[in-house]
Simulated assay, not measured.
Amino acid sequence: MVEIVRTNDLVLIGFLQSLLENANIPVLVADTHISSLEGMIGAFPRRILVPDDHAAQARRLIRDAGHAAELRHG
């Protein structure tokens, strides 16, 4: 799995998860439980992970949706 986005923005997480799943890209939103434990104050961002072989397609979709600035490099 490759981390492609890390953010505290729950709306963005939901949008990107839907975008990727609609393109049949498996998505794992990590750190949702730790975010709940810390009281949702935003101290721990959530991460969007995709399989290595879907990373390029996922990055392209996110760029095309106008969210290139959210992408993690690496």
Rank of each mutant, 00 (worst) to 15 (best):
M1A: 03
M1W: 05
M1F: 03
V2K: 14
V2T: 06
V2E: 14
E3H: 10
I4P: 00
I4G: 00
V5A: 04
R6M: 09
N8I: 15
D9Y: 03
D9I: 04
D9H: 07
L10K: 07
V11W: 04
L12E: 01
L12T: 05
I13L: 02
G14K: 01
G14Y: 04
Q17P: 02
Q17V: 02
L19Y: 02
L19W: 01
L19P: 01
A23S: 05
A23K: 06
N24P: 05
I25C: 08
I25Y: 02
I25N: 11
P26G: 05
P26E: 09
P26V: 03
V27R: 00
V27F: 01
L28G: 04
L28T: 10
V29W: 03
V29T: 08
A30E: 14
D31P: 00
D31Q: 06
T32Y: 04
T32G: 06
S35M: 05
S35W: 04
S36R: 14
L37N: 06
L37T: 05
E38Q: 07
G39L: 01
M40A: 09
I41T: 15
G42F: 03
G42V: 02
G42Y: 02
R46G: 01
R46I: 10
R47F: 14
I48P: 02
L49W: 06
V50I: 11
P51E: 07
P51Y: 06
D52R: 15
D53S: 13
D53W: 07
A55I: 01
A55E: 15
A56M: 15
A56I: 13
A56K: 14
Q57A: 15
A58S: 07
R60A: 10
R60T: 11
L61K: 05
L61N: 07
I62V: 15
I62D: 03
R63Y: 03
R63A: 09
R63K: 15
D64Y: 04
D64M: 13
D64R: 12
D64S: 14
A65L: 03
G66H: 07
G66W: 06
A68S: 09
A69H: 12
E70V: 13
L71M: 11
L71A: 04
R72D: 07
H73V: 13
H73I: 11
G74K: 10
